[in-house]
Simulated scan of single mutants.
Amino acid sequence: MSDSTPPQHPQYTYPPEDDELSLIDLWNIVWKRKWPWLTFGPLFGIVGTIIALNATVYFKAEATLAPNTDEDTGGGLAALAGQFGGLASMAGINLGGGGSTENAIATLKSRQFLTPLLTTNENLIALFPDEWDSDTKTWTVSKDRRNNDKRPTDQEAYDRFVKSSFGVSQDKKTGIVTVSIELEDPVKAAEWTNALIAQLNAHLRTQARQEAQKNLDYLNNQLSQTQVIEIRESLYGLIESQTKNAMLANAKEDFAFKVIDPAIVPELKSKPKRGLIVIASGFLGGIFGLFLCFVLYLKEQQQA
């Protein structure tokens, strides 16, 4: 009779995982070496407080705008554009009125529009207060410029304004546009915001008036040179549309945007967020201190 007892396999035992650390172990490591995070946490917090108290204070002024609809600006001539669009295209004529909101915003952000407004000496001082000596009434500069002039260049003025001070946003659902300017001087921030909107409306109104007059001159010239009744009727329709555009451009001050809520002098600073700076600095110091705790622990383990 054969032995049916199954073979016995040796039992293997695994050593405990000495490398695993529990939360209690981690706490003991940190608590026994608590001087780094107790030191660097408050130290970084103090440094953050000093930075926050000495940071330059800025104020943001905002204005709320509503784009003029196509009907308001004479662009509601879509039916006319469809009827005479081929003839207008051949003549190089734009039947639109004030143009789209996207074009108006693009103009507002453009270098060609902003540079003349920013590069007056008074506005440059507001943009570069750190480079202006109010006692000697002269420009000081900490970097070399190509023109060997201490006065900020047009490019520098535009870049600083667009990147640091100027903001334009549009709500895609409502179409409402918000324009904001952030400066050290709250009065200037509000004045610049309102002036910029007024300048934009005036600029686009002038462009529309000039374009309409140019189109009218061309159309009247073509009308005098043709006797074909169908073409003359088309030209009369185009002349009517351009006359309407010219009338709206002359009469409508809020040509591209209606000002719903003009900018007022802000009373509360927009930055710096001093409390956030202090909290973030203290937190960063505490994290750095904890990192040092574990570095010291690993060093002790290597030496043991």
Rank of each mutant, 00 (worst) to 15 (best):
E62N: 03
A63S: 02
A63N: 00
T64M: 07
T64A: 03
L65S: 02
L65F: 01
A66E: 06
N68E: 11
T69I: 06
D70R: 13
D70E: 12
E71D: 13
G74V: 07
G74M: 01
G74I: 11
G75K: 02
G75R: 03
G76L: 11
L77N: 11
A78Q: 12
A79E: 15
A81R: 14
G82S: 14
Q83A: 14
F84Q: 14
F84W: 13
G85L: 05
G86I: 15
G86S: 14
G86A: 15
A88H: 08
A88G: 11
A88F: 12
M90Y: 15
M90G: 15
M90E: 15
A91Q: 14
G92N: 14
G92D: 10
N94D: 15
L95S: 12
L95Q: 12
G96Y: 14
G97P: 07
G97S: 11
G98N: 06
G99H: 02
G99C: 08
G99K: 10
S100Q: 03
E102W: 13
N103R: 14
N103D: 15
I105Q: 09
I105P: 02
A106S: 12
A106D: 13
A106E: 14
L108H: 10
R111D: 00
Q112C: 08
Q112S: 13
F113C: 08
F113W: 06
T115L: 05
T115E: 07
T115N: 04
P116M: 03
P116D: 05
L117D: 06
T119V: 09
T119W: 05
N123W: 05
L124P: 01
I125L: 03
I125R: 00
A126M: 12
L127K: 03
P129L: 02
D133I: 05
D133W: 00
D133S: 00
D133Q: 05
D135Y: 03
D135V: 11
D135L: 04
K137S: 10
K137Y: 04
W139N: 04
T140V: 10
V141E: 07
V141H: 09
S142C: 05
S142A: 10
D144E: 13
R145M: 03
N147M: 04
N147S: 11
R151V: 05
R151N: 03
R151E: 09
P152K: 04
P152G: 09
P152W: 02
D154E: 12
Q155P: 11
Q155Y: 12
A157N: 01
A157S: 02
A157I: 03
Y158I: 00
Y158W: 00
Y158P: 00
F161P: 00
V162L: 04
S164M: 05
S165I: 08
S165W: 01
S165R: 11
S165D: 01
F166W: 00
G167S: 10
G167R: 03
G167T: 08
V168P: 01
V168I: 07
S169I: 01
S169M: 00
K172A: 11
K173H: 04
